[in-house]
């Protein structure tokens, strides 16, 4: 049988992943719920003073979304590994990195994008300062794809492990540090009335670089852990 074009393979993969997410659409709300819980815990712990909450709002929302994304990372390859379709993907004649990039894109669309959509709500819960209302989703828009791409490389290394949760967090954390610093840093700089374009530009530059390199690294990592 002659394999179809690479483009067709990517399209089929995207359609399949989206269908799978749609069939289990109840699960898709989990990251949002998690982020909401984390954000709701902060006022309970720190007290309800709006001034105090406003000061930390951007950072807390960032961390909450980062953690929710970390929790969702596990689902990236899990079911595909269990039913064997991940190995099919590795064996397919199409470039693995491209196929993985499609998978990561779908994963980002279904887990991170909803989080960005609700981020203004999360910010409002913490009395986010008015000038940050537009900036926070923008910073998240640049940061969350980075988190997904970097996380995917680490997930590829731990694929096939039964209890990978804590280990995955340990592997991912050092990679997330710069993203968090620049993303939340831009918001904090804006809140302090300082110029905030530079960190956002750095995030954008990093995103372009990682967009190219991470799928390649992810493919290499997957080949190692499935060998």
């Amino acid at each position: 049988m002659k394999p179809g074009s690479t483009l067709a393979a990517c399209a089929a993969l995207v359609r399949r992943d989206l269908t799978l997410v749609w069939r289990r659409r109840g699960d898709a709300a989990n990251p949002i719920l998690f982020a909401l819980i984390v954000v709701a815990l902060f006022p309970l712990a720190l007290g309800p003073e709006p001034e105090q909450l406003r000061r930390i709002a951007a950072g807390v929302v960032f961390v909450a979304i980062l953690l929710a994304g970390l929790l969702a990372l596990d689902t990236l390859f899990r079911s595909d590994y269990e039913d064997g379709s991940l190995e099919q993907l590795v064996l397919s004649p199409h470039p693995l990195s491209l196929l993985l990039a499609c998978k990561i894109a779908v994963h980002w669309l279904t887990t991170a994008l909803p989080l960005i959509v609700v981020s203004p709500l999360l910010g409002e819960l913490l009395h986010l300062a008015a000038p940050l209302r537009g900036l926070l989703p923008l910073a998240l828009l640049l940061a969350t794809p980075l988190l997904s791409l970097l996380g995917a490389v680490c997930v590829a290394l731990t694929v096939g492990m039964h209890r990978s949760g804590m280990l995955l967090a340990l592997l991912v954390l050092p990679l997330y540090v710069p993203v968090l610093i620049f993303g939340a840093g831009a918001c904090n700089a804006a809140q302090a009335g300082l110029p905030f374009a530079a960190p956002l530009l750095w995030l954008g530059a990093a995103l372009v670089l990682v967009l190219v390199l991470a799928p390649l690294a992810c493919a290499a990592a997957l080949r190692i852990s499935l060998s």
């Binding site: 680490c154 290394l157 280990l167 340990l170 592997l171 954390l173 990592a221 190692i224 060998s227």
Partner: peptide, 27 residues
């Protein structure tokens, strides 16, 4: 230190010694 712990943890978590070394080396 976290990077080191990640490498050590990954190396310890994979059963096959050669595969473990390759994965941890990649990390």
């Amino acid at each position: 230190l976290f990077l080191y712990l990640g490498v050590i943890g990954l190396h310890a978590a994979i059963e096959d010694r050669r595969q473990a070394a390759r994965a941890a080396g990649f990390l």
